[in-house]
Design a protein around this nucleic acid. Structure first.
Lengths: 228, 228
DNA sequence: TCAAGTCTATGATAAATGTCATATAATTTC
DNA sequence: GAAATTATATGACATTTATCATAGACTTGA
């Protein structure tokens, strides 16, 4: 079985603050899980008893609204920790997590995390920094959602996807989303998203090949996102 | 000078998890500050070196957007802790805080908070719980902002204000906002907010007396907020 | 107390966005 | 590999929301 001590992904998250001993215990207790594209890792309302340290793959975190529509709140990828909010606040999870690519993730029982927080102030602070960063981002998203137009938000989303997930060898975004999912990130109707994507394509901001998407003019998108 | 040990408000926030000794040190190091309605406590971009424990009063946390518009992200009142996100993530603050009522708040230097986190796991966990709760709320707001109509969001806001700040002896909300501020919470144009408030009044959901606002039919508002 | 400024209210209109309908393209399933 | 299903695309139209204009009500400060 793979050992946490030798796992590179750990350098990208708060687990880097653990001592060798703590890592060893964690390694013993963890499960290595795999998920196929489309698999649900956990659902809104579920009570989970551990966190997931994503090794690779991409997933979406979403919320179902009263009208049954899905709202994508954020994405996670290798290095991100999933479910820690629920563990720390001792509440069921409030988001549904779905794999967008095949994933591998380590499930670390809650006890290990809570022990480490109690024993290791460095880990504890690092953990807080992560939550605080997430909170800052969530506030910024809220403000954008409230004040920007759909077009501006779509431009933001294109840039965000490129910056976050990068491009493959052909220059296409290394994340594949349906139009419906794009609409759900932006917070608009699927048809509106489709229309605007076509417009962006016509204006030379992006290229579309089926579901694959290439950002051509990032500067143009950036200007657009700021209202020009 | 007032002592933290005897401060009741402490019971409402994470400082309740401190030991008597820790409280004593904190009490020695803290400043007691007052703010008048309209005063700015700190501004987006400022580097702060402590947190504010609100004793009483109400303030708004807002963000300026590219177009110069204010977006109110949340409110805080007695018992809430202000500025902890910035301290914990060692970043400048990303929100501007403005008093909406006269306020009293204790300024606690960063060192005291960080020391307590290092020394006291109970405080540390309690602190995390707070941040995580804020994060959960921010995600929920994001989802609402993305998927609800302006009318639904205004109904939500009315209910939220009543639940959070309560009513005075005449049944009016114990928080007074301008129409512009209400619009900023909801994320809409001031005129749209005014128009919808008039509509709500006509339909008997609320009563308006100048800036004072009374919720009459909370159930009606709730239904409306869910799209009926 | 009055004049200036700000806030609230409302109409008219424009712009943005959502909804419904339909057609084609892509994907899945048997 | 053909039929069924699902996803994408686009037009037509309805609805929501923003913007501009104007007027009266309320505050505030000299």
């Amino acid at each position: 079985m793979s050992k946490c001590q030798q796992c590179i992904i750990r350098e990208f998250n708060t687990l880097r603050s653990l001592t060798a001993d703590e890592l060893k215990t964690m390694s013993k207790e963890k499960d290595v899980l795999t998920f196929k594209k489309g698999d649900i890792i956990f659902k809104e309302g579920n009570a989970i008893n551990g966190v997931y340290c994503v090794k690779h793959g991409i997933c979406k975190l979403s919320k179902l609204n009263a009208n049954g529509k899905e709202q994508i709140v954020r994405f996670m990828k290798g290095g991100d920790m999933l479910g820690y909010r629920s563990i720390l606040s001792e509440e069921p999870v409030t988001l549904t997590v779905t794999a967008l690519k095949d994933m591998e993730a380590c499930y670390i029982p809650k006890k290990e995390i809570l022990d480490a927080i109690k024993e290791n102030p460095k880990f504890s602070l690092d953990m807080m920094k992560t939550v605080c960063g997430d909170l800052r981002d969530a506030n910024a998203s809220l403000s954008n959602m409230a004040q920007k137009s759909v077009k501006e938000r779509l431009a933001d989303t294109m840039i965000f996807l490129k910056e976050t997930f990068g491009e493959d060898e052909d220059g296409y975004l290394d994340i594949v989303l349906t139009r419906e999912e794009i609409a759900s990130v932006v917070g608009t109707a699927t048809e509106s998203a489709i229309r605007l994507l076509s417009e962006f394509k016509k204006k030379g901001f992006i290229e579309l090949t089926g579901k694959r998407l290439k950002v051509i003019d990032e500067v143009g998108l950036l200007k657009l996102s700021q209202g020009f």
